[in-house]
Design a protein around this nucleic acid. Sequence first.
DNA 1: TTTAAAATCATGTAAAAAGGGGATGCTGCA
DNA 2: TGCAGCATCCCCTTTTTACATGATTTTAAA
Lengths: 205, 205
Amino acid sequence: MSIKVFITDDHYMVIEGIRSLLQHEPAIEWMGHASNAESCLAYLRNQQPDVILMDINMPGQSGIDLCKAVKDKYPGIFIIGLSTFNQQSFIQKMMDNGASGYVLKNATQAELTAAITTVAKGQTYFSDEAAAALRHISNTQIPVITRREKEVLGLIAEGLTNTEIAAKLFISQATVDTHRKNLLIKFQTKNTASLVKTAVQLQLI
Amino acid sequence: MSIKVFITDDHYMVIEGIRSLLQHEPAIEWMGHASNAESCLAYLRNQQPDVILMDINMPGQSGIDLCKAVKDKYPGIFIIGLSTFNQQSFIQKMMDNGASGYVLKNATQAELTAAITTVAKGQTYFSDEAAAALRHISNTQIPVITRREKEVLGLIAEGLTNTEIAAKLFISQATVDTHRKNLLIKFQTKNTASLVKTAVQLQLI
DNA sequence: TTTAAAATCATGTAAAAAGGGGATGCTGCA
DNA sequence: TGCAGCATCCCCTTTTTACATGATTTTAAA
């Protein structure tokens, strides 16, 4: 029995590329594609593939959110994250949301096939580069910040001062001060500059 | 006479996708691909295509640099920038370095073909989204900063204080102060936080 | 329902950045 | 050769952050 595969990616060229790489693979059946989260979910209401290859970087609802949504409704579908970036933060978030594997877009046909057959058996698969990135997690841990802290962080990056943030959020300036202090501690940064840089790079803003 | 096309992209899936999109196009002849800047230049020493589709975002030497290198040696080759991002900064840099067009990776077969035939005639081509992004340039101009300013900017983002930067660069703290002041003016930002955010987002760091 | 985490507020000092002004030598380019 | 742009330096004031320390109220989870 062949493995039914579906793709969700907003890049036409990537979809074509994957189709081209998989078309001569007898064990794999191409079911089609969606170019955004909504049409992916719409498709699943009628038909369910075994494996979804999912771009993590899509306009609108990201692959990371879509992954969670799909897994909630269809726990039997296995998801492989697909991206040009091998950033720990992305991979980690994808796995947290129920993905079974992660493959970079520079993967070869062999890698792609291996990934699909592996996750279809219920196992996990990482491309070499992704696995290497994951091993660095202990070094560059993603800080766990609260809703409010994230809100304040965003406004800091916008260039607002503590006083302005306080006014905007209807809280005391002292409170903003505290949030800011905690952000610096959680990010292990010593001032606003490195805090913002790290946050932007980790895509937390 | 068919147009000879070459691809330089580090993403295997994208190469396959483009090949798949172009294979039934009689007016276009697929010459092959390279997955990095070096092998692209090596290829050109023996054979020259009419048009190169070039990813702007490659490890090592970026497409932006490669574009310049190719145009210096082979002014007759037309280059189309290829990217997942429609950021003004990227498009602008690519055009500055001699590219004739810019296409997003979510382009359709029709768009891609149109781009290739257009630039092969010596004209320029932008995908709709890229053109739209370019029109915003007046709003979000990329600041022109000097070498020294860029150096200081990098150290600011690392979290160094003016005193520390001064010590590191063997200059006075007052000088660093001035550079910092000028950076704020050039980026039209009002403090360190928004300066760093903007700089990181524009990939200047 | 207890408890831990999060969000809120305060007071005070020291350090750093922002904002304003002005000045000098160097250098690449027209 | 002249001049614009760059890099360098200095003064001053005000605003903002950083760091320390402690406390109260809300909220969410066990």
